[in-house]
Write a protein that binds this DNA or RNA. Structure first.
Length: 179
DNA sequence: GGCAAGATCCTCT
DNA sequence: GAGGATCTTGCCA
């Protein structure tokens, strides 16, 4: 069973502590995922899919393991992993991580040496992720991988941030410590 | 066709 | 801590 099989809630928790890695001609970069946010289906007012399927959000309606990359505030890319069944638009937003490999490359991409991957837009920039991945399946992208952690980490569920709708739902999963 | 909102980040004070 | 940048999407007239 793949990491992304399940509901947005269970997948968000499963992704915490997992290793997200990308390869490029410049080298390999990888992070330990430390923060992920669950987005429910069309009944989640904060989800892009709340008004049904559109051209923009159609990857969310695809099978589990599809990547949904959208532009935020006209500037940043945000990476989501689609979960749930086809036609059930659940997804997990990968918000932040802890740098592991390729620190130099991340610094180069970010143009600074601090705050490399502590936000959704920063994480995609540091890992070289953009909308070329939108609608692709994780298994079909040979330069990106997500690997489950060896041991289940200790996590905490907190309210979502940056939202104006349904922000009170405690669907943000944060890495507390690794067992 | 026009307008407002938005799952953010950076810079300046 | 506050405010500006920047642009796509969806709603409404």
């Amino acid at each position: 069973m793949a990491l992304w099989d399940g509901t947005a809630i269970t997948v968000a928790q499963a992704l915490i502590g997992a290793t997200l890695a990308t390869k490029s001609p410049s080298g390999v970069t990888s992070v330990t995922i430390s923060e992920a946010e669950a987005y429910g289906g069309i009944d989640d007012p904060a989800s892009h899919a709340r008004r049904g399927q559109t051209e923009r959000n159609s990857p969310m309606f695809g099978p589990a393991g599809t990547l949904y990359v959208y532009r935020s505030y006209g500037i940043h890319w945000c990476l989501n992993v689609v979960t749930g069944a086809v036609g059930d638009p659940q997804a997990v937003l990968i918000r932040a991580g802890i740098p592991q490999q390729g620190l130099d490359l991340m610094v180069e991409r970010r143009g600074r040496c601090d705050h490399l991957v502590d936000g959704p837009g920063k994480l995609t920039q540091a890992l070289g992720i953009d909308n070329s991945l939108d609608g692709r399946r994780i298994e079909q992208v040979d330069w990106l991988s997500i690997t489950a952690p060896d041991r289940a980490p200790i996590v905490e569920w907190k309210p979502r941030v940056g939202l104006t709708k349904a922000a009170e739902r405690r669907w943000r999963c944060v890495l507390l410590a690794r067992d």
